[in-house]
């Protein structure tokens, strides 16, 4: 389950000491999912199809490989429509990330850029429900209690910078869902509705309880993630927003997923 960068990739990745090994996306087995945040008045159980999800957020190295092969998405070339002026702001050059940060999640990427990267890999951004469904599985795998999840999530938001930003590029299971970056999802712009109308309060005045399937700490934390990310502009390129890609499962998925280089 390991794939190697092509020759071109090796040439690009001169900053890394050894050939860069990238782990494959992990399979998220589908099933019933009851979203913790109610976007409709009725409580719904959703059927999630199986899909693949990157084990870790996309790294600087991977994103560099992408912009090298997609010049339109280089910092010097990106259209104003697709970013807020801070796109890849932390990179010292158009085609170089900061020294020693090959394995850090790429940040200062707009939602548009994240989607374009995933499309180039043969994937897409996960949907909000897919991401949260995977998040529940992750909590089970990692044995994270609901209380710890909520506590850590609010702690991360109140102080997102940690000294350790590297991700394990060899991860074989879901990693770093909460402790590195806030992640873009395809339908991140929340639309809270009330029948035909957009909800009048939209949960923006502390009225979160109306939108939770049950008022638990974990659900409240998840709602906070939904809501605060929903307030970003799709052009927003910030120091804490990153992403990972999802891939539909088809017969040849694993063999062909995204090896572009």
């Amino acid at each position: 389950m390991v794939k190697w960068l092509g020759v071109a990739g090796l040439m690009f990745s001169t900053l890394t000491a050894s050939p860069l090994v990238l782990s494959d996306p992990v399979r998220i087995n589908g099933g019933e999912f009851e979203p913790p945040v109610l976007l409709d008045k009725e409580r719904l159980s959703i059927e999630i199809n199986s899909f693949m999800l990157d084990a870790t957020p996309v790294t600087n190295q991977l994103f560099l490989d992408f912009v090298k092969s997609h010049p339109k998405w280089q910092r010097d070339n990106i259209a104003a429509l697709f970013h807020d002026g801070n796109y890849l702001k932390h990179w010292p050059q158009n085609n170089a990330y900061p020294d020693g940060q090959a394995d850090h999640p790429v940040t200062y990427v707009s939602w548009f850029a994240a989607r374009e990267y995933c499309a180039a890999k043969g994937g897409r951004l996960p949907s909000l429900n897919e991401w949260e469904y995977a998040s529940v599985q992750y909590r089970q795998q990692q044995n994270i209690s609901d209380d710890d999840y909520a506590r850590n999530l609010f702690a991360w938001y109140s102080q997102p910078k940690s000294d350790e930003q590297r991700v394990n590029v060899n991860a074989t299971e879901l990693s770093h869902m909460y402790d590195r970056v806030n992640e873009w999802v395809e339908d991140y712009q929340l639309l809270l509705t009330n029948g035909d109308d957009v909800d009048l309060l939209s949960g923006s005045c502390g009225d979160g309880a109306r939108f939770l399937s049950s008022f638990t700490k974990a659900n409240y934390a998840t709602f906070f993630r939904y809501q605060s990310r929903s307030d970003y502009a799709p052009q927003s390129s910030t120091s804490t927003m990153g992403f990972r890609c999802a891939y539909d499962i088809s017969s040849d998925t694993i063999a062909s997923n995204g090896d572009q280089l």
């Binding site: 609010f154 938001y157 949960g203 005045c205």
Partner: peptide, 12 residues
Amino acid sequence: CGTSSVLMHTAM
């Protein structure tokens, strides 16, 4: 600040 969660934003 009136951004959700208002509780968190004000408490912060």
